[in-house]
């Protein structure tokens, strides 16, 4: 196994880099979209309920089916993978974001509103800083799930560690299977760890 890695290093780090690139793009787009949707959802309860319901339905569609459904529209390749993964992430992110933002101590909301904060000021100055825990757990959940689901995206030619895995399966190459599994699992664990550290750093600024 080590021998394989030493002999063909490019066969490992290329898919790993592709996977990382996919993860990064998906998370950036997901976060931007989720932030916009959350701000919209915070304006009214019915809107937020409808949104969560809608995304929970989409989330229940198996990823392979959703990839297949989108191929006629966006074709084979990265774009389709990004679209699907971003849509899946919306459910994980929105559910955590909305729950966290609504979970802030009502007395703080009352004090802030009574002082004359507008809805947006309340959101950004009170709700967001007081729900970092929920925001980060959504972010972590979405990142780890993206890493896992992105391996399946190799089936629609999006590259990444999935291609290593599926190649290995097709040619019965144990080295490829093992390295594919090991690398995608480690990527998930390391990403999760980095995000936990980031969260701790941010929370150290406000001792409770």
């Amino acid at each position: 196994m080590i021998e394989y890695a030493l002999k063909h290093p490019d066969k490992l780090w290329k898919p790993l880099l592709q996977h990382l690139e996919l993860l990064l793009v998906v998370m950036i787009v997901s976060l931007i979209l989720a932030a916009l949707l959350t701000i919209t959802a915070m304006t009214s309860k019915p809107i937020s309920n409808t949104m969560l319901h809608l995304f929970s339905i989409i989330y229940s569609i198996p990823s392979l089916a959703l990839f297949a459904l989108l191929i006629p529209i966006t074709g084979l390749g990265k774009i389709t993978a990004i679209v699907v993964l971003v849509i899946y992430n919306q459910y994980l992110l929105l559910r955590n974001f909305i729950a966290g933002l609504n979970d802030v101590d009502p007395s703080m909301i009352e004090a802030a509103t009574g002082m004359g904060m507008s809805r947006m000021q309340l959101l950004f100055q009170v709700r967001v800083p007081l729900s970092t825990k929920a925001l980060f757990s959504g972010l972590r959940l979405a990142s780890v799930s993206t890493i896992g689901m992105a391996t399946i995206a190799a089936l629609i030619n999006a590259g990444g560690l999935g291609s290593l895995l599926f190649d290995g399966l097709r040619t019965m190459n144990v080295n490829k299977i093992l390295w594919g599994s090991l690398l995608s699992a480690s990527l998930a664990i390391v990403t999760n760890g980095i995000l936990i550290q980031m969260e701790k750093r941010i929370q150290n600024h406000n001792p409770s």
């Binding site: 703080m108 004090a111 802030a112 002082m115 009170v126 600024h205």
Partner: peptide, 30 residues
């Protein structure tokens, strides 16, 4: 309503200080 509230001081039983801000930042909110 936001303009009305900024002209009125409001104190509640639970105080509702913001735990992520220092005392100075809390007082300086408005």
């Amino acid at each position: 309503p936001v303009k009305v509230r900024r002209k009125i001081g409001y104190v509640i039983q639970q105080v509702g200080l913001f735990p992520h801000m220092t005392i100075a930042q809390n007082i300086a909110t408005v």
